Computed example of a mutant assay.
Amino acid sequence: MKKIYFLCTGNSCRSQMAEGYAKKILPANEFQIESAGIETHGLNPNAVKVMAEDGVDISSHYSKLIDLNYLNTSDLVITLCGDAKDKCPMLPPQTKSLHWPLSDPAQATGTLEEQLQEFRKVRDEIKKLVTSLNNYVH
């Protein structure tokens, strides 16, 4: 079974959305999927809301710190922000890594609807990227 690890700064939005999509899109019998952050910021309610709009329930997820055991046994580590990429511990030589430079929807300003639009934009980018993983990991 291949292990994928999505890493972000606070494990509150982008990495949680990526974990949610990966668990829905990639075959569960082939992949173990987790997400974590270099800090924990809690689960962002806007991320939960926009994922639910697309039929993915991440409401039971919670913000986690990087687990070095999981990291060191991962087949693929994907960073979703520059901060995580810069601060990510050294990876073992057999671990592949990808970087998806996504904007942080939690930094969006304006009305709630404008903020949700930013979350939806990032969610849709993540969905495309996770879908493309099917080709990358096989």
Rank of each mutant, 00 (worst) to 15 (best):
S60W: 06
L71T: 11
P92W: 02
L7R: 05
V56T: 06
H41G: 09
A106N: 12
I38Q: 02
T40C: 08
P27L: 01
Q107H: 11
F6V: 10
K121G: 00
I38H: 04
Q115P: 00
M51G: 01
N11C: 06
D75H: 13
A36R: 10
Y21A: 10
K96G: 04
F31W: 00
I66G: 05
P105Y: 01
Q32A: 11
A28M: 08
L43H: 03
N69M: 05
G82M: 06
T109R: 14
S12Q: 05
F31E: 00
F31Q: 00
Q115L: 06
S12C: 09
H61D: 03
E118S: 11
K85I: 04
L26E: 02
L80F: 07
R120E: 01
C13Q: 01
Q115E: 12
F119E: 00
A28E: 15
K64E: 15
T95H: 02
K85F: 10
Q117N: 15
N69G: 07
R14A: 03
E114S: 07
L26W: 02
D104P: 01
Q16K: 12
Y70S: 03
V77D: 04
S60V: 14
A106H: 07
P93T: 08
A106M: 04
D57T: 11
E113D: 15
V48R: 01
D67R: 05
